[in-house]
């Protein structure tokens, strides 16, 4: 557990030292979302209908783009190899790294999302549901994405490859995340969607760290 706290602290510190990385992801998200009204036109009805989907797809892409940072630095300087050798369970280490990735790359997006939702004319309730669904869903993206990031460590063209591996696996999160907001705007209530997102999160928390640990062993052997 000590080790875990240490990794959390160290990675957070490293992330804070590289604030530009955090900001790049955030601005990618903002720019991407702002492009849609320019592409489809400023029709408020249309934007309101598209808003949840656009915000969620943009969050997916932004999270995917930042996956490279999850292990790359530790891989390059050999720290990752040391982590594989240390007696602490590798799955726990992975969990800590995924948590930091979420805090540094995705929490800012989640906090920014309601603001962008306003631009799409989403009503107040929907903004709450959007934030809540992103809070529940984005950790799943970090965890599932970690599988792709660990499998493609050190490969040429790794970034594009990650998107092929990971985006299809993101689909359930996208469906229930955007669906939750849709359900709330159409008055159906988002409870069902949000609880499924919660279930996905629990499942991801239980299953993915072990898979990522196995993947790291495969990639570093």
């Amino acid at each position: 557990m000590n080790m875990l706290a240490w990794i959390l602290r160290r990675d957070l510190l490293l992330a804070m030292r590289r604030k530009s990385d955090v900001l790049t992801t955030l601005f990618f998200f903002v720019i991407m979302v702002s492009l849609f009204p320019l592409g489809v036109g400023p029709e408020p009805q249309l934007l309101k209908a598209m808003g949840p989907g656009v915000l969620w797809v943009a969050a997916l892409l932004a999270s995917m783009l930042s996956l490279g940072r999850l292990f790359a630095a530790d891989y390059a300087d050999g720290t990752l190899e040391q982590m594989l050798l240390c007696p602490e369970s590798l799955a726990l280490i992975v969990l800590a790294k995924a948590a930091v990735h979420w805090l540094a790359s995705e929490l800012p997006l989640v906090l920014m999302a309601p603001l962008l939702g306003l631009q799409f004319g989403l009503p107040g309730d929907a903004l709450w549901v959007l934030t809540l669904s992103l809070l529940l869903g984005t950790p799943v993206l970090s965890l599932v994405g970690a599988i792709g990031a660990s499998l493609t460590l050190g490969l040429r063209g790794g970034g594009v490859l990650v998107s092929l591996l990971v985006l299809p696996l993101y689909i359930p999160v996208l469906i229930f995340g955007a669906g939750a907001v849709d359900a709330s705007t159409s008055g159906l209530g988002a409870g069902g969607h949000l609880s499924i997102l919660g279930a996905l999160l629990v499942l991801a928390l239980l299953a993915t760290p072990k898979a990522v640990a196995a993947a790291l062993h495969i990639s570093l052997e």
């Binding site: 599988i147 299809p168 689909i171 359930p172 469906i175 669906g179 898979a211 993947a215 990639s219």
Partner: peptide
């Protein structure tokens, strides 16, 4: 690596199928 991604995929196929159905 291929084996791992195939296993992850096969676990995800039912989840994907049911979410798409929903």
């Amino acid at each position: 690596a291929g084996a791992l991604i195939a296993l992850v995929g096969v676990i995800n196929v039912p989840i994907i199928y049911f979410s798409v159905k929903w």
